[in-house]
């Protein structure tokens, strides 16, 4: 499989699933060309709704459609859709409405558009809601499986997707399951837990570290909530060092979730890699290098953390 953005894989998967299940509808707020639902709306006239630049109303309309039996995918940039947190909190989560919230353009990897368009706090916000699972697939295969899962899942759910292309990282026979992580590379000295667009970079970092005598395990944490406590604790107990790698604020994201669980269940030295401030404009590669999320930056942080 060639590299593909998870938003693109999402758009394609939704067209395929839409043929089998006419309950699926899409809602957008003037970004359907970017969230990649435009093809769904063209393929299935009358099932794609553009609510204009009015995200709160879009989320509420999605809740109402869900309460009338539809399976609405409510889509925008991660920052814009999750930014309407109070509407998600009451109209979707507390209501238990079967709404699939889709946030694309996650992280600093969107590049040039800069901070106001970057979803960097969305995981932190939605982690606080008791009944909203958070899924961030790492490549095309996993995205297709996650979208199919979202249709089957009864209740609200958040799907976090990238603008940038993602190299394939999951084995062809792998299968996405909520609450389960995928160990992509075994290792003994440290466990790298990554999600979404950072999984590939974590794998590249592990290759570099190998040549320098460090054996790094790499785990793909597509299911950010619930996380996979068994896999996490097993890896932490064995390697005795954990590093999380995410294109999200280090406050309250994957690193925060891992920290909470480890502190309670298996206290283990932990280093959280991610975004520590606001984002900014720039080329994506340069931004990843600046924030230490490129393979070289991850490898350097790991070595420093291990005192090697």
């Amino acid at each position: 499989m060639p590299a593909k953005a998870s938003r693109a894989a999402f758009g394609e998967a939704l067209v395929e699933l839409g043929a089998r299940d006419d309950r699926i509808v899409t809602l957008d707020a003037d970004l359907s060309k970017s969230t990649m639902t435009a093809r769904f709306a063209r393929t299935y006239p009358g099932r794609g709704f553009n609510l204009g630049i009015a995200e709160s109303n879009m989320i509420g309309v999605g809740a109402g459609l869900a309460l009338a039996g539809k399976i609405p995918f409510v889509c925008s940039f991660a920052c814009f859709v999750v930014g309407r947190f109070e509407t998600i909190r009451i109209s979707v989560a507390y209501t238990g409405a079967n709404v699939k919230i889709v946030g694309t353009h996650a992280g600093i990897a969107i590049g040039e558009d800069g901070y106001s368009q970057m979803g960097l706090e969305d995981i932190a916000c939605l982690r606080a809601l008791p009944n909203v699972p958070i899924i961030q697939p790492a490549d095309e295969l996993e995205t297709r499986q996650a979208v199919a899962y979202a249709v089957e899942h009864q209740g609200p759910l958040y799907l976090r997707l990238t603008r940038q292309s993602l190299e394939p990282v999951c084995p062809a026979d792998s299968r996405f399951r909520l609450g389960r992580w995928l160990t992509l590379r075994p290792g003994n000295d440290v466990a790298l837990i990554a999600s979404g667009g950072t999984v590939f970079n974590a794998l590249e970092a592990a290759t570099r570290l190998q040549s320098e005598g460090v054996s790094a395990e790499v785990i793909n944490a597509a299911s950010i909530k619930p996380l996979d406590e068994d896999t996490l604790v097993r890896a932490a107990t064995r390697t005795r060092r954990v590093v999380t790698v995410e294109d999200h604020s280090i406050f309250g994201g994957l690193g925060g979730a891992v920290a909470e669980t480890l502190a309670e269940v298996a206290p283990t030295p932990l280093k959280r890699l991610g975004v520590t401030g606001f984002g900014e404009s720039g080329d994506p590669k340069g931004l990843y290098a600046k924030h230490g999320l490129d393979p070289a930056g991850i490898a350097a942080s790991v070595k420093k953390f291990l005192n090697r």
Binding site: F49, N57, I59, V61, G64, L67, K70, T87, S91, T95
Partner: peptide
């Protein structure tokens, strides 16, 4: 009870969605 309300301003959007869903059905 059809919708969780009380956080003001949300009920009309939910009602639009319900009305649309019922029309589609």
């Amino acid at each position: 009870i059809e919708a969780a309300t009380g956080s003001l301003g949300q009920g009309l959007s939910i009602s639009l969605g319900m009305a649309l869903g019922l029309k589609l059905a």
